[in-house]
Design a protein around this nucleic acid. Structure first.
Lengths: 242, 242
DNA sequence: CTAATGATTTGACCTAGGTCAAATACACCG
DNA sequence: CGGTGTATTTGACCTAGGTCAAATCATTAG
């Protein structure tokens, strides 16, 4: 007598985000509906998955890496409206035409679905739709708290808050801990941090040096940050006065 | 032989937004599930339906009037993160604790549901859930384009764009037309416009006088606006220079 | 290890928009 | 219709953060 595993696509079985991504809402044997229409795809740092203005594009689950979502004004001023981390859902399933550009900030890998197909699978799997709804509501909360930051916080509050947020979401470097500080690598350059926060490169740079000089953080190389005094950083993130 | 109408709650039958609100996704005979748990409720200008921090609150459909959604920093700086018009969905069905304050900018009336009950009805009515998902995605798009405005546009672009948007969403005054301009009443005071746009009262006021002086708009009373030159206003809304 | 190249930092300066403080202007009330 | 209280406008001034330009610095290719 042979034991037969429920069919589970091998990619999915090995998937790093099997239970963080939307897929977490599907039992092993339901997963085939999704995996049947999806294919994995690497995306190198700097590459764009979806361009704003593209018609009928794709959706995806982000498996590894970091993506940005961005819009721009007619004359080219850019605003990054969100960052995406492993397990996050990528794309605008109900938009005929994408309003955002999705691009990789680090080398990334995705599980990509054709938009229409994805919407159909959604209709057949209430649990999937429910989870997507919850994720979308959470994304909305995130967008709105970011609106508060953009509209009402000072440059130093913005930068401090941003570092704290990344510290939470990003994998910590080995050797990281309360003593040495929480150490991680920025997936964005100064220009991109500026585009997230509604500032200029120069202002971001000056704020970072101020934090370094005052001992709240340490910087090494272009991209490595250590949060030395989380408590002080937290205070700076929500204090109007400098 | 007597013809029996499918049961349709009398409130719903007379509802002004029966087919703009979420309810549009439900057939007359499904509507009872929702109307059974809902009750209509007036909300006077200035009153608050939900306070940020409230636990387990309510959801609603907005039947008439205009609401604001707002957050604030710890020290009291406020950001209005969205306006709600008749037919819009109100509340945060999946949040244990509200992160936003919902308050009436004009006298309003709502169709209010207990949060948990609403979530259950949602689970039983796929069409309802689908429509809510689409609305939520649309709200997310809106929030993100507002982020572009907050982060990257100048005061004059912000004000011009805001007037155009209200001109689209608000009922036009009688006598309104291409000739006299599109006339409507602002549901917000200067302070609230400032809180939407991430500006100060004074800057909003100065921008409005500038628009009036240059003949693009006309103002009468505190709250009535006439858009005299829509084309020029549109240009101002997307031009970096002045 | 060194040069080449783009990213970042730093400095000097400027301006959009904020702040503070009076005037006005509405709207509502008696 | 005049008085009162709040919302708005206007003015004078100031500053956070933008701009422009010039060093540095980190990285990668050789």
């Amino acid at each position: 007598m042979v034991y037969v595993e429920p069919h589970l696509d091998e990619r999915c079985a090995a998937c790093l985000v099997r239970d963080q991504a939307l897929c977490a809402s599907l039992a092993d044997d339901e997963l085939s509906a999704l995996s049947a229409i999806g294919r994995t795809r690497p995306l190198a740092r700097g590459q764009t998955l979806i361009w704003a203005g593209d018609s009928s594009s794709v959706c995806a689950n982000l498996v590894s890496g970091v993506l940005k979502m961005a819009t721009a004004t007619a004359d080219g001023r850019e605003q990054i409206v969100g960052l995406l981390f492993p397990g996050d859902f990528v794309g605008q399933p109900f938009a005929e035409e994408a309003s955002l550009t999705f691009a990789a900030l680090t080398d990334a890998s995705l599980c990509v679905y054709p938009r229409e197909g994805f919407v159909e699978v959604l209709a057949d799997h209430p649990a999937l739709e429910r989870l997507l709804l919850q994720r979308t509501m959470a994304a909305l909360d995130d967008a709105r708290s970011r609106m508060l930051t953009l509209g009402r916080r000072s440059a130093s509050e913005k930068v401090a808050g941003f570092l704290l947020e990344l510290g939470h979401r990003l994998p910590r470097r080995p050797g990281s801990g309360p003593a040495a500080g929480y150490v991680f690598d920025l997936p964005l350059g100064r220009a991109q941090i500026a585009d997230v926060l509604g500032l200029t490169i120069e202002t971001v740079s000056r704020q970072l040096t101020r934090l370094r000089t005052s001992g709240v953080i340490a910087l090494s190389g272009r991209r490595t940050v250590a949060i030395r005094e989380p408590a002080r950083l937290k205070r700076l993130a929500s204090t109007a006065g400098a």
